[in-house]
Amino acid sequence: MIRTLLVRGLLVGLLAGLVAGGFAFVFGEPRVDSAIALEEAHAAHEAPAGHDHGEEELVSRPGQKAGLFLATGLYGLAVGGIFALVYAGLRGRVGPRSEGGLALAAAGMAFVAIILVPFVKYPANPPAVGDPDTINGRTLLYVVMVLVGLAATAIAVATARRVTAGPWARWAAGVAAFLVPVIAAWQLLPAVNEVPADFPATLLWQFRVASLGTQLVFWTAFGVLFGWLCDRAVRRRAAVPV
């Protein structure tokens, strides 16, 4: 059964990754192009007359755009495989009883814990935003927020399972148990604000919305497709005469 779930997760992850790649291509890449144009104009303005600071790109922009689908596809494969293994461990232990309901709930929690929680504190930035010298520190802070989101999710699930007063009480306890460590991390971890003063706020906002939207499209497509295939497999097994 685990092998079947793993293959299902890989295939659905690949498909969802390509769908998310299409969303990023349509809504995100134009913003990246605009940010790169601003960065190049700024560099040209600061360069001394007759001196070229330009560096040849290792990968051209058309190549980068084509590689976007490769990147999101590989991302989907990796996430799909990990999700399938986690899902196999959750079946029958926590969450909704139906296969599809559990898949949707798990995908939703993964999006909140892995994507939304760190994004609120450290949102994505386009080219021309961010100091290259601080990239290691910023990456570490982002990883810390991901770990906080995962730990908060585990605490919330464990807390909700201990509450027997009813569904509303379980939900309230779970949400509270999730928010306490997340809000504490948001307040305690250092802020990162390296947006240049002259960078267009509209472009920054549009890029961040497109970035978050790409992840939302991925996790929605993945959860719906994975859950549908799980429910379909259950119906097929039930239709087989014993």
Rank of each mutant, 00 (worst) to 15 (best):
P167F: 06
G80W: 04
P96E: 14
E39P: 11
L141P: 00
A49N: 06
Y87T: 00
L150I: 12
G101C: 10
G89S: 12
F178S: 11
I135R: 13
V209P: 04
L140F: 09
G81Q: 10
T202F: 13
L189P: 02
H42C: 03
G108A: 05
V224Q: 09
L179A: 12
A41E: 15
W219M: 01
V157W: 13
M1A: 10
A239F: 08
G28A: 12
A152K: 09
A151N: 00
E56R: 07
F69E: 04
L229E: 11
G227F: 03
V79S: 00
A169W: 15
E46S: 14
P132S: 04
V112P: 01
Y87C: 04
R208G: 08
R237Y: 05
G174S: 12
V26E: 05
T134D: 14
Y75P: 00
E39T: 03
V26W: 15
E55Y: 06
V143R: 15
T202R: 14
A110C: 03
L85P: 04
L204V: 07
A41S: 15
V180Y: 06
R208Y: 04
Y87L: 14
R61K: 13
G100Y: 10
V163Y: 12
Q187T: 09
L116A: 04
R161Q: 10
G54Q: 10
G80Q: 11
A66F: 14
P132A: 15
V240Q: 11
Y75E: 04
L77D: 09
R236S: 01
G95I: 06
T164R: 15
V217T: 07
T153V: 03
V112Q: 07
R237N: 08
V86W: 11
A71Y: 01
K65Y: 13
R8D: 13
S98Q: 09
G166R: 12
H53I: 06
A113C: 08
I36L: 15
D131C: 03
L141V: 00
L140S: 14
V209I: 13
R236W: 00
V12Y: 04
V143F: 15
L225R: 01
V192M: 03
G137S: 09
D198I: 09
L204G: 07
D231C: 01
